[in-house]
Each structure stands twice: as C-alpha cells, then as structure tokens.
C-alpha cells in the first residue's frame, strides 16, 4: 500500500489536533495530557506525543497525517518524522506572543522540507487577533528566505475546506519545485 506522510507542526495552541480532526477520515488518535504550561496556551490539555489521522485514496493509498507536539523539548521526534515526510503544514496562531518569529524558527527547524517546497503556512486565530496580517508573514519569509515562495493562508483549523486548500497547495508546490530547472541569478 502506498503511503504519504504529511506533518502538521506549530506552537502549542495553533490548532494542530483540530486540523487533523478536520482532515482525517478516521477518529483521530491523540495523546493528550493535562497542560501544565497555561501561560503559553490557555487550554486544559495538550498533545504530548503524536496526533494521528488518515485520508484513504482509491481504497489502497493512504495519506498519514501526523501532528507533532509543539513544545521544543520534543524536537527529536520532528527529526524522525521529517525523514519520512512528503511535506509540512505549519500552523501558527496569530494570537501567540511572537507568531512571525515562531514561524521563522519552525521553517528553519524543518529546513530540509522547506528547501524542496514542502512547507505551507496556515495562520490560525486571525479572527481573534487581526494583526499581524498574512502579508507580514509573507514579507518576513521573503526577507529571510528570498529563494522560496511558501504559500501563506489564513485558515480556520476547524474548516475542512481551508485545510484541504492548504494540503492541495502543499502538493502543487512540491510538484512545481521538483520539476523546476535550477536557477542561477547572474
């Protein structure tokens, strides 16, 4: 059976578990535990290992969705999963303390995926906090990584259409980047 791994990463409270629930066709397998860091994200529980969901295509091909824990102390797990991953949906909550900084940090953490066009950014909770605008995320990426054009969308992790748009953009971006000739700017 063909399998494709898509990672969903982001800071605590960005909506990773919810995004997988929106996309998955099976009940999501979650590893939630009581949240002891209420200062970072004011929610009762948080993911401590992995969230897991699936989309089945043609009855035999599976897209495996892994939500990776947002806390940096679990970053050894990111490395293991990154090796198997086709791409990454990076969710950033707009009401975080430094959402643009969080995004840049995480893009750097997943640089291998980023280099082949395998990262798409979904900005969540912009209904709660209007600024920064998505254009500020775009500008920061262009400043730090001028050679990449990562898609940035404002999304509601509860909205399946939004999450499908994000996933589709990720696939098209990987395809386009992998077919493009190497450019040399003279």
């Amino acid at each position: 059976m063909a399998e494709h791994v898509i990672l969903i990463a982001g800071p605590m409270g960005a909506g990773k578990t919810t995004a997988i629930q929106s996309l998955s066709e099976i009940p999501v397998v979650s590893t939630e535990a009581a949240n002891t860091d209420r200062a970072t994200a004011n929610k009762a529980t948080t993911t401590v290992a992995l969230d897991y969901g699936e989309i089945t295509l043609d009855g035999v091909e599976k897209v495996r969705l892994y939500g990776v824990p947002g806390q940096r102390r679990f970053d050894y797990m990111w490395r293991i999963l990154e090796e198997r991953a086709l791409g990454l949906i990076l969710l950033i909550n707009n009401d975080g303390q430094d959402p643009v900084g969080d995004m840049l940090e995480l893009i750097k953490d997943f640089s291998a995926l980023q280099e082949r066009g395998g990262v798409v950014i979904g900005v969540t909770r912009s209904d709660v906090q209007e600024y920064p605008h998505t254009s500020q995320y775009v500008d920061s990426i262009r400043e730090v990584y001028p050679h990449i054009t990562a898609p940035v969308f404002s999304v509601d992790a509860r909205n399946r259409d939004h999450m499908l748009i994000t996933l589709t953009a990720l696939l098209f971006n990987i395809q386009a980047q992998s077919e493009a000739p190497m450019e040399d700017v003279a």
Binding site: H4, E61, V63, L86, T168, F172, S178, M182, D184, V185
Partner: peptide, 25 residues
Amino acid sequence: VEIRRLQTVTQPEQVSRVGGLIGRF
C-alpha cells in the same frame, strides 16, 4: 534576472509520486 538552465533538478520519482497523489485527490 538571467536564468541559466544549469541542470534539470527534476526528481522523477518525487514528481510522479506527487503528480499521482494530486490526481487521486
């Protein structure tokens, strides 16, 4: 911006894998 086609970086396996996946989606 001068673009020189230095080499094709196409990765057929990756392309066919993703292209097929998009088709099935």
